[in-house]
Amino acid sequence: MFVFTIRRILQTIPVLFGVSILVFLMMHLVPGDPAQVIAGEAASPQTIEQIRERLGLNDPLPMQYLNFIMNALQGDLGTSIRSGQPVSEEVFSRFWVTMELAFYSMILSAFIGLIAGIISAVRHYTIIDVVVMIIALFGLSMPNFWLGLMLMQFFSINLEILPVSGWGTPEQIILPVIALGTAGAAIIARMTRSSMLEVIGQDYIRTARAKGVKERFVIYKHALKNAMIPVVTVIGLEFGTLLTGAVLTETVFSINGLGRFVVESIRARDFPAVQGSVLVIALVFILVNLIVDLSYRFLNKRIDLN
């Protein structure tokens, strides 16, 4: 396990390297001269030269990358063209908002998804199973921005019981979290159900029943613990999906998070800001994947049949 952990951590190094190169190249992959793109069509040659100088675009490419990476390692992600503030500060202040949104949404999806999945599996072959799975299919096929708009229309505009936008108060949190968490809940419900059904058919479940274990404990003690192993992975990976989904949800609910920041920065051609935020999001992605892998391995080590 220890060796595996070390190896798995070392494996992230080439990934980090690749990601940093991609993020760095983003600016150069845009057709045309980045400085020209940033400055806009009507800019004078002097302005363009100024931007060029400021972003260090006159240096050779490897040199630029080295500067970028050295600065990033020291927490310096450059200066936002739009606001003139350090990108790291801009990103950091929004980072926690997005993490909160994703985290609450994950809690919601895991909670609802697990319960729905277990009920569905235990009530296999009944109408309850069918109904839960149909609802899950709906949840899965609704885009989160559309669900967000519907929720907003109904609860904020028609009923006027919840705020339309913003982030921070409990009332403001409810709708975005539902909008973002629903698809995840559906995925987790389906995964939990199929995993439970598979486990319930296993020989050791029959053994548990033959021991006189109450059906409730057969499910919650003997089946669930085994069924959770693949589900934990899905829940972990769901976190990455939630971060991506946050871009749209934040935009719909005017939440000042990292997702919306990326969208706005792209629109304003604020390259340093885009690079900085994408880099941070990618880091979180890699970290979450690492944790998921390690916990899967940990949960699974007792099942290793060889």
Partner: peptide
């Protein structure tokens, strides 16, 4: 029946490899 199973009447199965709970 739950009081009888595993108590008054017990059963051993055909598949020793998979009849115990792995966790």
């Amino acid at each position: 029946m739950q009081n009888i199973r595993g108590n008054k009447i017990s059963m051993i199965f055909q598949e020793p490899m998979t009849s115990l709970n792995p966790v």
